[in-house]
């Protein structure tokens, strides 16, 4: 998709959002709404400017390398998996699995190398945050659920 098409679509969407902000801001009690109204109007004006620009622009945009959608989806799944696992089975396990899978799938590393990297990096994080900084990282709701 060329950049000016993206721009015009975005400005319509964000412009509507800004209009919404202004609308809600006008309804706020006291002087609470002043700032949202100003911010929303500023956003609206900027959208207008970008919109006009994107229609006026005749010369083609410089080409961008297309997104490798396959890799993008894979990576997003890895990230979502990390969060899901952190909440369910605990941070340490989640980190190891996330690093192992993402390193194997995305970086052409062989699995033994990926495993060593994953385990050592996760241990490092665990030592720094849990032991040195005393941050109670999520330990996973699954164990509590199983215990009950």
């Amino acid at each position: 998709m060329p950049l000016n098409k993206i721009d015009s679509t975005l400005t319509v969407l964000i412009g509507a959002l800004c209009a919404g902000v202004v609308w809600i801001g006008l309804g706020m009690r006291g002087d609470a709404g002043i700032f949202p109204v100003i911010a929303g109007s500023l956003g609206g004006l900027a959208c207008l400017g970008i919109g006009i620009n994107s229609f006026r622009r005749k010369r083609p945009d410089e080409s961008q390398p297309p997104i490798a959608w396959q890799r993008f989806t894979l990576w997003c799944l890895c990230v979502l998996g990390l969060l899901g696992l952190m909440i369910s089975v605990g941070t340490f396990v989640a980190l190891v699995i996330f690093l192992l899978v993402s390193l194997c799938c995305l970086s052409d590393l062989r699995w033994p190398a990926a495993l060593i990297l994953a385990v050592s990096f996760s241990s490092l994080i665990y030592v720094v945050f849990v032991h040195l900084l005393a941050v109670p990282l999520p330990s996973g709701g699954l164990w509590n659920w199983l215990a009950n």
Binding site: L82, L103, L106, D108, L137
Partner: peptide
Amino acid sequence: AVLGPMILVFSVIGTYA
């Protein structure tokens, strides 16, 4: 692709902390 996952881990854990 080796660096990315590690940056992500730091970002996620650091934000949680």
